[in-house]
Amino acid sequence: MGRVLRWHSDRMDDFAGTQAPLRRLTDPTEAIAALELAVPGMVSLRRASPAVVDWPVLEAGLGIALPVDYKLLCELYPPFVIGGFLGVGTPEPGGETGWVQATREELETIAEWCEEANLVVPLHPFPTPGGLLSWAASPQGDFFLWSTHPTDPQEWTVTVASRSSAWWHYTGGVVQFMAEYAAGVLEPWALPQVRPEAEAW
């Protein structure tokens, strides 16, 4: 996956820092290949044929377009869990409205976390410009979030909000994040290191 740049602040109780991939994978197919390489069991979970998710309906309900790497992931895979920890609840065909509703409900929790966090640079939930939007969670209550970009979803990055109140950023997309997390390339910062295995959720 490459070298990871790290920076630690002196406020480790709140903000652990930012990690960056050596090269951001902008091609969604390349990002999926990196995830399948890092988590070999992913291949066995692939759908027989890509799901036909009604993205226009889903994105209209959400009020914003989603990154292409995530949309390809959802089309190729059903909901899954990596290492028994990182759970990705992908939208299913016909369930787009329910997925939007659940995502919007999570924004209330994210708003509470943002208010309680003692961060030097305050964070806010979507739909604030650049606001946070959930894409995965752990059974222990950790949130994996997008830091949205107001005009280009391909510029979205990852923010981790752990149940231990540590926050940190990763300047790549969600699929590349999962690949590097599972491969042990990332410093997990307040998260457990996960096993490179996947199972259907």
Rank of each mutant, 00 (worst) to 15 (best):
Y77N: 07
G83H: 02
D27I: 08
G61L: 13
L72A: 09
R104T: 04
P50I: 04
G63R: 03
V68L: 13
G94A: 12
E92L: 15
Y70W: 15
P40K: 07
R104W: 06
P91T: 01
L37A: 15
L25C: 08
L45A: 05
V100G: 04
A48D: 11
P91E: 01
V68F: 07
L35T: 02
T90H: 09
L45K: 06
V39S: 10
G94Y: 14
P79K: 04
P56G: 07
E96Q: 11
K71Y: 01
Y77L: 11
A65E: 12
Y77C: 10
E96Y: 10
V88H: 10
G95T: 06
E96C: 05
R24D: 07
A38N: 09
V81M: 11
E92Y: 07
L35C: 02
P50S: 11
Q101Y: 09
L37T: 14
L73I: 04
M42K: 10
I32S: 01
W99L: 09
E92Q: 14
V53A: 00
E59L: 08
K71W: 05
V81S: 12
L35H: 07
L62W: 01
R46I: 00
R24G: 09
V43M: 09
V52K: 13
L73T: 04
G94N: 13
E92S: 14
L72M: 15
D69F: 12
E105M: 06
A65Y: 01
A38S: 15
G41I: 03
G41C: 06
F80I: 03
L72F: 08
V39P: 11
S44A: 15
A33P: 00
T97V: 10
V52C: 08
S49T: 11
L107M: 13
M42P: 03
V39N: 09
V39M: 09
A60F: 04
E106I: 05
P67T: 04
Y70L: 15
A31G: 09
P91C: 08
S49L: 07
A60L: 12
E36M: 14
A60C: 08
I32M: 12
F85N: 01
A34M: 13
P28Q: 12
P78W: 00
V100C: 15
R46P: 00
R46W: 10
I32E: 06
G41E: 08
E106C: 10
A48S: 13
W99H: 15
V100Q: 11
A38V: 11
P91L: 03
P40D: 08
C74I: 01
V68W: 02
Y70D: 04
P78Q: 05
T26D: 13
A102V: 09
C74W: 00
P91Q: 02
E108N: 10
A102F: 07
T26Q: 12
V68Y: 05
L35K: 06
F80V: 03
L86W: 10
R47C: 13
P40L: 08
L76A: 03
T29H: 14
W99Q: 08
Q101V: 12
I64Y: 12
G61Q: 07
